Simulated scan of single mutants.
Amino acid sequence: MSLNNKTLFITGASRGIGREIALRAARDGANIVIAAKSAEAHAKLPGTIHSVAEEVIAAGGQALALQLDVRDENAVAVAMAKAAEHFGGIDALINNAGAIKLMGVEHLPAKRFDLMYQINTRAVMVCSQAALPYLKKSSNGHIINLSPPLNLDEKWFAQHGPYTVTKYGMSMLTLGMSAEFKKYAISVNSLWPKTMIATAAIEFELGSRDAFKRARSPLIMADAAYTILNSKQRSISGRLLIDEEILREHGQTEFEHYRFDPEGGDLIPDLFVD
């Protein structure tokens, strides 16, 4: 498997899972478009498009850092065109940008729901739509949405229904686009972690790093995405995948090295995973 000379457009790639996917592909010599809002350092959320670009180049890849707000469809179209011109095309889109607020309907401000909907659900459509002309020309086009399995147990709606709706919207678009884009031989899948992943965004939402003792590092998601991106001829498409499960399907049996804290306790299952 290799992503050498393949071009990946990754949203929200300035930190966390997006950054880890970028670095994993860079080791093959891939071209990485780091598309995120973070052009300048944030006091509580380390990482920028420029720092990740430097890391990608150091890892062996090529990098293009683009500041992008995925809520702006015109800016998205311009960014896709710049990426395709710079690298000669686009082979994969990773819809990784996300917004989270674990709050119920009663107290969630409408503008916060709008933000989650625009960055989660709407941006998947906008980015996929803008990438489509270039993905059609790829010999092995892929779209991966960072969204969960569709688990309709009411417990996933009771405390944070608005967030759930926006993430499930992404997964439903996965199913729809996989069928719609079949004629273009483009694979479309969702990917979600089996356990909590130690990222700055989760630390920011929870207010501390205590849970990281029972979390995995983003590397497991990067390895799972790498496996999907190397699949050919839509051998994997239209699936709502769990990181550990897709790795097991491809022969991996050991997962301890993904622990964020080797001395930590039992891993915490992620949202939407029973």
Rank of each mutant, 00 (worst) to 15 (best):
L241S: 05
G264R: 10
H250P: 07
N5T: 15
S190L: 00
M170P: 10
L108G: 02
S235A: 13
A81D: 15
D261N: 15
Q62K: 15
A200L: 07
S2D: 07
N74M: 05
T48S: 14
K232D: 13
F113D: 10
V105K: 04
F9C: 03
E180L: 01
L68E: 04
A75W: 09
M125A: 06
L219G: 05
I49Y: 01
V165C: 08
A41Y: 03
E244A: 05
A83D: 05
F204L: 09
N96W: 06
I34K: 03
D91K: 00
T253N: 11
N74Q: 14
F113E: 11
Y168A: 01
G161P: 02
G60D: 08
M170T: 05
F212W: 15
M172C: 06
H42L: 06
I220E: 14
M170R: 07
P46A: 12
G207A: 06
D243E: 08
A81L: 13
L247A: 07
Q62M: 08
R209H: 11
G176V: 07
V78W: 03
Q252N: 03
A179N: 11
I220D: 07
T121N: 05
S38I: 01
A30C: 09
R259P: 12
T166G: 06
S208I: 12
P148F: 01
G169F: 14
T174R: 00
L271G: 07
S231F: 00
C127G: 09
K194W: 02
P269H: 04
A30F: 08
K232G: 02
H250F: 13
K213R: 14
S138A: 09
G238L: 04
F87G: 03
T11F: 11
D91A: 03
K111T: 14
M172F: 13
P262I: 03
A35V: 13
Y134P: 02
I228R: 00
A84R: 01
P109S: 12
A97V: 03
E245I: 02
Y258W: 12
L219F: 08
A22G: 15
D266F: 13
A92T: 04
W192H: 03
L241V: 06
P262G: 11
K232F: 07
E85K: 01
L175R: 03
A179E: 13
R24C: 13
G251I: 14
Q118A: 15
K167N: 10
V70Q: 07
S51K: 08
A84G: 12
R209Q: 12
I49E: 04
D270L: 01
D114Y: 01
K232E: 15
V273E: 10
A131W: 05
A26G: 06
L66R: 04
L68F: 06
I90R: 04
A92I: 01
E263S: 13
R15D: 12
K136R: 15
K194H: 12
A215W: 04
Q118E: 15
K194E: 15
F260S: 10
L64D: 14
S171W: 02
S231L: 07
A110H: 04
I202T: 06
L66E: 12
